[in-house]
C-alpha cells in the first residue's frame, strides 16, 4: 500500500523502496486506482523513501502525467535524491514534471 494524503484536487503519494520494472507494475496499479477519482487533478510524488529508480520510473511518472494532463492537471515530484535526479533530467522530464523542494510548496 502506498501512503497517500488527499487535499482538495491534490493527491500526495509517498513512494518507498525501489522503482524498477518489477516494482513499477504494482506501483502503477495502485496509483491508477487512486487516480480513478476524476476530481484529482494534481499528483505529488514524494520520493524521500525511494532508494533506487531506473528508467522504468520514467514510464511510470510520464504515464500518470498523461492521465492528469487530460484533466488539466499535472504531476510534481518532491525529495528526489541526486541519483534519481540524474535519470529525471536525462529523460527531459523536467520540462513537464515540476520538481519541488518542500511538501509545503506542493500542497499550497
Amino acid at each position: 500500500m502506498l501512503r497517500s494524503i488527499r487535499d482538495g484536487d491534490k493527491l500526495l503519494v509517498g513512494l518507498d523502496g525501489e522503482l524498477d520494472h518489477f516494482c513499477a507494475q504494482s506501483i502503477r496499479r495502485e496509483l491508477d486506482s487512486q487516480l480513478a477519482d476524476p476530481t484529482i487533478r494534481q499528483l505529488i510524488l514524494d520520493f524521500s523513501g525511494l532508494t533506487f529508480m531506473d528508467s522504468s520510473g520514467i514510464g511510470v511518472i510520464l504515464g500518470r502525467y498523461r492521465i492528469l494532463r487530460e484533466r488539466g492537471g499535472g504531476v510534481s515530484v518532491i525529495h528526489m535524491n541526486d541519483h534519481i535526479a540524474r535519470i529525471f533530467h536525462m529523460s527531459g522530464m523536467g520540462k513537464v514534471i515540476r520538481q519541488l523542494d518542500r511538501k509545503q510548496e506542493a500542497v499550497r
Partner: peptide
C-alpha cells in the same frame, strides 16, 4: 503500451 521509456541504453551509456 507498457510505458517503457526507451531510455535503457541511454542510461547505460551515461
Amino acid at each position: 503500451e507498457q510505458e517503457r521509456s526507451g531510455m535503457g541504453f541511454a542510461v547505460m551509456q551515461t
